[in-house]
Each structure stands twice: as structure tokens, then as C-alpha cells.
């Protein structure tokens, strides 16, 4: 296997809300089975970029994405008109900033995506649920109360449950939008630890405002500013030796 094969190629992506241009000509390759961090000041379009990848933007009427987002190895442009959004969302999972479990049991939360795909066999469901909870580092804490309501979990546990829910359908790409910004440091550490486990099988793209987090747990980092991609590089390199003046200013806290 090639060490650094590309999982996703974003080509000339422009994004509009009505007439307001939010993303400007983004060109970006995402490496397979790595964690790529997206960072940049608030409002620069990180969430928007992320939501384009699993076509969540199509739920907003005034939104329009122009350009290409090519999934490899299938070599399919996700923004193509003939592509079924459901097909895309089967392969690209997403976890949101605020934990959002369903008001159902832990088990049913994780099994949600599997049931959508028609899985009925109870043992098969149980296996997949356990596997996903393990990947999200939650199994040990909750294995004895899978039938209890997910709403009784702590915020950090809820977020890991949401990660498990996204992983249960075995996506190729996992999108995380500031997954730890609503959590305490210990819960954050839990999730960061799990990332190295998750990326063994899944390509992760993570938005974060926390520079330390980006430096700690990502392989690549992308810096965005006002809808443009300014710089992309290996995280160690980008944080110690940024090529662009604006990246340097941001990292050293001079703005943002």
C-alpha cells in the first residue's frame, strides 16, 4: 500500500450562500487514514467546507457548491448531479459540535444508521454496536447499560456516543466539527486518545479552534482565512515552521 494515498481531492471549490461567497477556490488533498485538522478564525468557512463533503449543504435551500470533491479510490465527484446524497453519507460520517444523541437508548442510538440500512439480525446489530462503542472508547463505561437512555450520559460520553453512532456504519471518512469544544479537558483527552485508534480504519477531517489539539493529534493541518485555504502541511512542520506570514500570525496569536 502506498504510504500517503489520497482519499479526497477538493478541486476549485467555491461555495455560496445566496450571493455571499463563503469558500473561495479551495484546492486540497486529504490523505487516507490520517487526521487532517482544519483551523482558522471564526467564520472563515471551516464548517461549511466540512458540510460540503457529506452534502449536508444540500439541506439548505440557498446554498450552492461549485467545483469538485472527488472520493478515491472510487474516483467519484461527490458534487456531481448524478450522485445520491444518501450514497455519500453512507461513506462520509459526521459528528457535530454539540453532542446530539437521539432520545433513545444507547443501543438504539448506535444502531440507528444500521437500522436505516435494513439490518435486522440482532446478533449482527449487537456486534456492530459493540465494535463501534469500542472504537469510540466508550464500551467499558456503558456495556452494562446499553438499554438506558442516552440522555443520561455526561456530555463527553454523549459525544463519544455520537462518534460511535457515526462509526457504526463503517464510513470511509469521518468529519468532526469541533467535537470537543463543548467538553471538559478530561473528556477532550478521551476523544483525542481515541483518534489514533479511529484513524487505523477511517480518514478523519477535524475542525478545531484549539491549536494544541491540532498539533497534538493531527497528521496534517490546513489553515483557512476568510474562505480561502492559506496553507496546508504536515502538522509538525506547519506549527514549527509555517510558510505563510498569515499562518504564523495566527499560530503565534497575533490575530484570530
Amino acid at each position: 500500500m502506498v504510504e500517503n494515498s489520497t482519499k479526497l481531492q477538493i478541486k476549485n471549490l467555491n461555495f455560496f450562500y445566496n450571493t455571499q461567497q463563503v469558500l473561495k477556490n479551495i484546492n486540497l488533498d486529504i490523505s487516507e487514514k490520517k487526521v487532517t485538522a482544519l483551523m482558522g478564525p471564526s467564520g472563515c468557512g471551516k464548517t461549511t467546507l466540512l458540510r460540503c463533503v457529506n452534502l449536508m449543504h444540500e439541506l439548505v435551500e440557498e446554498a450552492e457548491a461549485l467545483g469538485e470533491i472527488v472520493l478515491q479510490p472510487q474516483n467519484i465527484n461527490l458534487l456531481g448531479l448524478d450522485v445520491d446524497p444518501l450514497w455519500v453519507r453512507e461513506r462520509v460520517g459526521m459528528v457535530f459540535q454539540k453532542p446530539n444523541p437521539f432520545p433513545k437508548s444507547l443501543f438504539e442510538n448506535v444502531a440507528y444508521g444500521l437500522r436505516l440500512r435494513g439490518m435486522k439480525n440482532q446478533t449482527e446489530l449487537s456486534d456492530r454496536v459493540e465494535m463501534a462503542l469500542n472504537q469510540a472508547g466508550l464500551w467499558g463505561e456503558v456495556s452494562d447499560r446499553l438499554q438506558k437512555s442516552a440522555l443520561a450520559l455526561s456530555g463527553g460520553q454523549q459525544q463519544r456516543l455520537c462518534i460511535a453512532r457515526a462509526l457504526a456504519v463503517q464510513p470511509e471518512i469521518l468529519l468532526l466539527d469541533e467535537p470537543t469544544s463543548a467538553l471538559d479537558p478530561i473528556s477532550t483527552a478521551h476523544i483525542e486518545e481515541q483518534l489514533s485508534e479511529i484513524k487505523k480504519t477511517v480518514t478523519v477531517i477535524m475542525v478545531t479552534h484549539n491549536l494544541h489539539q491540532a498539533a497534538r493529534c493531527s497528521d496534517d493541518t490546513v489553515f483557512m482565512l476568510a474562505g480561502e485555504m492559506i496553507e496546508k502541511g504536515k502538522s509538525q512542520k506547519l506549527f514549527t515552521n509555517p510558510q505563510d506570514k498569515r499562518t504564523e500570525n495566527y499560530i503565534t496569536g497575533r490575530f484570530g
Partner: peptide, 15 residues
């Protein structure tokens, strides 16, 4: 109902 749960469902590939 909170709309972010609806999004969660769509994001999992639900129609």
C-alpha cells in the same frame, strides 16, 4: 424537536 437531531439523522444517511 431540536433541529440538530434532524441533522444528525440526515448525516447518518436517512431520507
Amino acid at each position: 424537536l431540536p433541529s440538530n437531531l434532524k441533522e444528525a439523522s440526515f448525516a447518518l444517511g436517512a431520507t
